[in-house]
Design a binder for these strands. Structure first.
Length: 621
RNA sequence: CGGGGUGUAGCGCAGUUGGCAGCGCACCGCGUUUGGGACGCGGGGGUCGGCGGUUCAAGUCCGCCCACCCCGACCA
């Protein structure tokens, strides 16, 4: 702006004057006048807001929903996300991470190379460009990383490396829900470790384990780490970082006595010791109208533990490029439940769903009275407790009949014997035998030893010291930013609004002006403070609006900035500016000349408190 | 994809037997008020989710579709 000169229109204004357009309000990135802010607070939350934290984020003007599972971040929300990003970058860089950026739109060819173009369902968004070439919207970036790695990495001298980016992803989830917790479009920090040895992978994995605790604690979010399912990707170890809260979609099994924690998908239990009995002869009994285990146990007057339960599932199992549907009969003891994730892993299934009645009948089984005799084309999987449990009652494969004294080994057998039972509250801890608890949790981060699955699929190799070609050993590590923000809002709020941890608050100081009518002193004081605080590099949100005091205080509470300064005729008469912390009830008057230094020292203390929480944690698998 | 629910102003909602589209908050103007969502007066704002049908007349009745929410299935 060649003709610009200092603003001549208002006192203390730092804008420049453009002769053609008039004054242009500066957008000093650290400060904002609320009269200029692009968003408004809402007195009522949208009726369909699904949790308190989410409702407050909407009411306070941080986010707006655009479509199912798709959100816009307003300036306040984006500033909070930017602060989370800064923490992510610090902690990633601290463990040797190098930031880069990978595209959201990827050629389908890459996904065809790994096979995921074929194996991933409709949650992978597919599109075509103008030349009819297939493209995908990245739902994760292993393919993109692999492609880069095979281009860049040739030698063991280029390993290990850690790369990461913060990027948008899209997963066309069949059912987005719970506000920011489960969305379709989201920003994620994902890092990828590249190693020449498994020891190297373990080092980077453990470094992430610690870094993730640092990140969440610096954001003020309490999390626990749990062992997680590694799924189909050939990985051999995964942890999830869980924020325990009823809004969570995952069930966490934990033992207060010894600290065992696991996602219910992989949680083990210490199974009861079955009675030792000699096998008795098979006996067919008439058991009318006993299609459920409860009915059967009641009819025969035996505990459910003396029965065997057959659950029919249909598994999609990859055979080459094709998927084959395979009927699976899973047998667990009658008092236990089937864990579908475990079963899925045992049979190597890509998908697993309850079998239809037709599918069951086609195999020769009778639903409700099924047993593993006389069946065809059925994969039988037996829980590892069954072979030790003698003389169980099982179906006779005939309507209204069951068999007593069924014994695994004598009466039937299968190569697939494994732990396929679900853990639940009240079961015995697999480590110490104490009673397990079950809690709901939100997965805010995960770390995953991928191994060589992607390297193999994409040809990511390097030459080792001996000139031999080896596969790059990979790990992947993710944190969803919006989900993290949503969890922090869930954790830190009260009836009046949000209460941001200092580290991720969109602004550090909320300066409230109550101008009054007597004189211009409050206004001039507030403007002066605004400039002083900004000059001291503090993030200031300045409520210069013409609103009633009640409106301003309520909005301040709603937005939840950690430290509030109020300038009014009354405060000045009392000797200065009123200072109040959002999470405290006390207020105190600070002399004008001490406001900046006092504000700085309080914020520094709040900051130090969060930093101090980022301590070394014990690593346990 | 199955089951249920809701679509009327920016947000929250009412709208009777089919008969001029309403209320509260928010927004604009004027005035009063000024330490916890204050008051008065005057305003602006609608393809009643969409398309089709019945009817003299449809927010309202019928059909189809769409969107959003909840439960389930699903979730590298």
């Amino acid at each position: 702006m060649p003709n610009s000169k200092p603003c001549q229109t208002s006192t203390g204004c730092m804008c420049t004057w453009n002769p053609t357009t008039g004054p242009i309000k500066p957008n000093r990135n650290t400060a904002m006048r609320m009269s200029q802010l692009f968003s408004q607070t809402l007195r009522e939350a949208p009726a369909d807001a699904q949790s308190e934290g989410f409702a407050l984020l909407v009411r306070a003007g941080f986010i707006r929903q655009i479509a199912a599972g798709i959100f816009a971040s307003l300036p306040l929300g984006l500033r909070a996300l930017r602060k989370i990003e800064a923490i992510l970058r610090e902690e990633m860089n601290a463990i040797g991470g190098q930031e880069l950026s990978m595209p959201v739109v990827l050629p389908a060819d890459l996904w065809k190379e790994t096979g995921r173009w074929y194996t991933v369902g409709a949650e992978l968004a597919r599109l075509k460009d103008r030349n009819e070439r297939d493209l995908v919207l990245a739902m994760t970036h292993e393919e993109a990383v692999g492609d880069l790695v095979r281009r860049e990495v040739q030698s063991y001298k280029q390993l290990p490396r850690l790369i990461y980016h913060i990027q948008t992803k899209f997963r066309d989830d069949p059912r987005p829900r719970a506000g920011l917790i489960r969305v379709r479009e989201f920003s994620m920090k994902d890092s990828y470790s590249l190693d020449s040895s498994w020891e190297g992978l373990d080092r980077q994995y453990r470094a992430h384990y610690q870094a993730y605790f640092n990140i969440f604690r610096r954001c003020g979010l309490p999390v626990i780490s749990v062992k997680a399912d590694t799924g189909m990707m050939g990985g051999n170890l995964a942890h999830e970082f869980m924020y325990l809260n009823p809004i969570g979609e995952d069930t966490i099994i934990l033992c207060e006595a010894c600290g065992y924690t696991a996602n219910r998908q992989v949680a083990r239990v210490r199974k009861p010791t079955p009675p030792t009995e000699a096998p008795l002869p098979l006996e067919k009994v008439h058991t009318p109208r006993t299609k459920t285990i409860a009915d059967l146990a009641a009819f025969l007057q035996i505990p459910e533990a003396r029965t065997a339960k057959a659950v029919f599932m249909t598994a999609s199992i990859p055979t080459g490029q094709e998927m084959t549907d395979q009927l699976v009969m899973a047998i667990v003891r009658g008092d236990m439940e089937l864990n579908e994730t475990k079963l899925s892993n045992v049979v190597n299934a890509k998908e697993l769903r309850p079998a239809t009645e037709e599918e069951i009948l086609a195999s020769g089984a009778v639903p409700g009275f099924a047993s593993p005799y006389g069946l065809h084309d059925v994969l039988v999987v037996v829980d590892d407790l069954i072979p030790n449990s003698p003389n169980l009652v099982a179906g006779a494969n005939e309507t209204d009949y069951h068999l007593k004294n069924v014994n695994y080994g004598r009466d039937y057998a299968t190569p697939l014997v494994a732990d396929i039972t679900a853990a639940g509250a009240g079961d015995a801890c697999p480590e110490c035998g104490s009673l397990l608890q079950a809690e709901r949790g939100v997965e805010v981060g995960n770390i995953f030893k991928l191994g060589t699955w992607f390297s193999k699929a994409l040809g990511c190799t390097f030459q080792d010291e001996n000139g031999e070609n080896q596969l790059v050993i990979m790990g992947s590590y993710g944190i969803g930013l919006g989900r993290l923000l949503g969890c922090v809002a869930e954790e830190h709020h009260d009836a009046n609004g949000l209460i941001w941890p200092e580290s991720i608050a969109p602004y550090s100081v909320h300066l409230v002006l109550l101008p009054g009518k007597q004189n211009a002193l409050p206004q001039e004081t507030a403007e002066g403070l605004y400039n002083q605080l900004t000059a001291a590099s503090l993030d200031v949100l300045y409520d210069d609006r013409e609103e009633n005091p009640g409106v301003k205080f309520n909005d301040a509470d709603l937005i939840g900035i950690p430290l509030r300064l109020t300038v009014s005729g009354r405060s000045l008469e009392n000797g200065g500016v009123e200072l109040k912390l959002r999470n405290r009830t006390e207020r105190e008057i600070i002399p004008l000349d001490a406001v900046v230094s006092r504000t700085q020292s309080i914020l520094a203390a709040l900051h130090a408190e969060l930093q101090a929480a980022a301590v070394l944690v014990d690593y346990h698998e």
